[in-house]
Design a binder for these strands. Structure first.
Lengths: 116, 116
DNA sequence: TTGCAATACATTGAACTTCGAGGTATGGTG
DNA sequence: CACCATACCTCGAAGTTCAATGTATTGCAA
């Protein structure tokens, strides 16, 4: 529900951000996304399938993603790609993420009266 | 429960990190922490009292914080400070936070095959 | 050819945080 | 004397994420 609180329910929705970012680059299917996140983050991040699939479904029903079935080497895959609405969503999430982490970094790193 | 999963339940525990960081600088009381976070982050982050107090209690019962009552200008305050165990916890959380955000940044910013 | 690992989809219940609203009580100010 | 700021606290609801599990197919190895 995109959460409309003071904070965007804090750091939640990171998987959503990562997924949108990957799909913004090229179309991918669920299982591929799970591994792409693990691989590209050198194992630092690992979102399970139990996280990825529900997010994909939610994003699609929100109109941020569109999907198409495709059979490759006898394997049926569902490829997802970002819609225009999804691009906006990605931009928003990325901006939120950037400012939030900046604020947190200031708080963590900044001695005495941070924020000059 | 500190969550012992693959990821540290992802981005959860940011309030805990911020609180430990503030208390590592000097002893503070709950109400003060709430405002310190708001002020130092230029309103970007706002953890309510409903978040701060339970975290303080949990950290204390985990032995990461110790408290002492103090009455200042007729007002009863509970000042918290970091124990040795709390310092270790802070160091761990900060390290986790740093590597996680670094990984996410790489994923977000990195084009094609991130991680050279 | 039988069995097991990897691929590929999906759902479920539990656990945890966080949020927001509320509740109590005291001190200073208009 | 009322009201706001201070200062503590708890509760229920909401939302994510996790781990486990389930199905089915492909390819490889024993």
């Amino acid at each position: 529900m995109v959460s409309r609180g003071s904070n965007p329910n804090f750091m939640n929705g990171v998987p959503e951000l990562l997924i949108l970012r990957l799909l913004d680059e090229r179309e991918m299917y669920g299982y591929e996304i799970v591994q792409a996140i693990r691989d590209r983050s050198r194992e630092a991040i690992a979102v399970g399938e139990g996280v990825v699939y529900p997010v994909l479904h939610a994003l699609e029903s929100d109109g941020a993603l569109k999907s198409r079935r495709k059979t490759v080497q006898g394997r049926s895959r569902i490829y997802y790609s970002v819609t225009r609405a999804g691009s906006r969503r990605l931009a928003d999430l990325a901006a939120d993420w950037t400012s939030l982490t900046a604020a947190i970094h200031t708080l963590i790193a900044g001695g005495k009266h941070a924020i000059p």
